[in-house]
Amino acid sequence: MKAAEDSIVTTAVDEFLAWGKEHSLFYLLFATACCGIELMQTGGPRYDVDRLGMIPRATPRQSDLMIVAGTITHKMASRVRTLWEQMTEPRWVVSMGSCANSGGPFSKWSYSVLNGVDKYIPVDVYIPGCPPRPEALIDGVMALRERVRRYRTLGIRDRDPYVVAGHEAPFGSHPGKEREATR
């Protein structure tokens, strides 16, 4: 963006749209387990993600971002997929906590827990922790905002590798195929 004069700004359409998307990431109020309490406290008075333009929405149809906070069981998995499909594009997914990343403490012995939500929906940012601190969640959201800023509505869309919050360089490309289909 360049400012030519007072109150006149020249920019590309794509950049402008991405700028708007980046600063208004409405997230789905969707909490399954323990991480949901930390998600609530991140929205609470101390961490206050409202200041980042993040407002909780009760319905997936109004949300841009799904924060998968907590364990996903096999019974819940198809519902998570339905919720994700109900979100309008472009949509992003943050996997919050070990359970959503990989099954966490339940992955080894539990017969009912899905070992990672990325088997059902494509994930953009993984946040480690059991549960992650609110600071870690905000860090993950900042990593996601980088991606949102690079998102192109009209121009050529390049496929981004996924990100692990707290790591500088993303490693490897995304394992799922859905990413190409949706962008």
Partner: peptide
């Protein structure tokens, strides 16, 4: 119910 059944009681027998 059952959307968050994580088999914690079963895990109790494994650890």
């Amino acid at each position: 119910q059952g959307y968050l059944h994580r088999a914690i009681e079963k895990i109790g027998e494994c650890v």
